[in-house]
Design a protein around this nucleic acid. Structure first.
Ligand SMILES: [Zn+2]
Ligand SMILES: [Zn+2]
Ligand SMILES: [Zn+2]
Ligand SMILES: [Zn+2]
Lengths: 155, 155
DNA sequence: GACCGGGTCGGAACATTATATCATCAGGTC
DNA sequence: GACCTGATGATATAATGTTCCGACCCGGTC
């Protein structure tokens, strides 16, 4: 599978990103990141916990949430608010080398659940302009577009 | 207070919108809508429930959620996903006369909690274009911009 | 009047998502 | 060794949201 190689690369990069910043990608955090990357769609915290328990019998909600918080902080994953679920950051395509929090948008398919991350400059720019127009100092924007993905639409 | 008049007007309009569609704004639904409109910031379902209990001792979670579902369906309120909270639709400013689901964006102040609804055509258009570019059929877009509102920023 | 249907609400239980708190342990510093 | 910091173990609890069943009302329809 090509995905396995991609995942391995992503994990290696994550390791590098963390050490470059003085953060530590501990075995636990790495395990959680791998589970998120392995999933085909955004995963919920308790789904991760169930999988984690197989490897770490003592795992509990805080175990997962602490790891997720770290990974979010490092920009290695994102949270999809509409789904209360987490997804690996896809930094390829847009050239952000794992900025802590880079502008991004999600396209969520209601049929198959596939969620694609994009970073459309026009969307980002329009949002910045809208905020500026009313004197609002933008910190972070959540953009989650729901509908039907191309594959599901043509069927 | 000017807000009271605004709220009364909004309630009257809500009533009219519902009857025009064959839906019924029952006393319960109207009460919940009034509580949402009365709040200064987005309100959580359980905060509404607490207030509702004062008037309706038997109120339980489904009581509130059913009313909220109805109001969302009618486009009278919106849900703010980042806050798991609900806010009245501000249809003034943009000329949607309570479309069931109209494109909109939120500006959420992290300092004071104030949340402003806007409907910026450039943002809406950029999102539509981004979706179309990848063959995605858009149904609904959540745009929630967090930061500091103008009042809090100047202080 | 009897019957049926949809829509609304009361009420109990449950499911899902997230956090608070305290204890423990390992590594580095003085 | 005494001390601090960051990470994890472990238990409990909070916050948010849903399922399910039964009652009730109200408008047809026979
Ligand atoms: Zn990303
Ligand atoms: Zn799809
Ligand atoms: Zn609105
Ligand atoms: Zn503010």
């Amino acid at each position: 599978m090509a995905e396995v190689a991609t995942r391995e690369t992503a994990l290696k990069e994550a390791e590098a990103v963390c050490t470059r910043r003085g953060a530590v990608l501990t075995p636990l955090r790495r395990q959680v990141l791998e589970l998120v990357l392995r999933a085909e769609a955004p995963v919920g915290a308790y789904a991760l916990l169930d999988q984690l328990k197989a490897m770490r019998p003592g795992a509990a909600p805080p175990t997962v949430y602490r790891a997720l918080d770290f990974l979010l902080e490092q920009g290695l994953i994102h949270k999809v608010e509409r789904l209360n679920a987490y997804i690996g950051c896809n930094e390829s395509g847009h050239g952000h080398s794992h900025d802590h929090h880079h502008p991004h948008q999600f396209l969520i398919c209601r049929t198959c659940g596939a969620t694609m991350e994009i970073a459309d400059p026009a969307v980002t720019h329009a949002i910045e302009a809208a905020a500026r127009r009313v004197g609002f100092v933008l910190a972070e924007a959540t953009v989650e577009i729901e509908g039907t993905c191309a594959r599901c639409a043509e069927a």
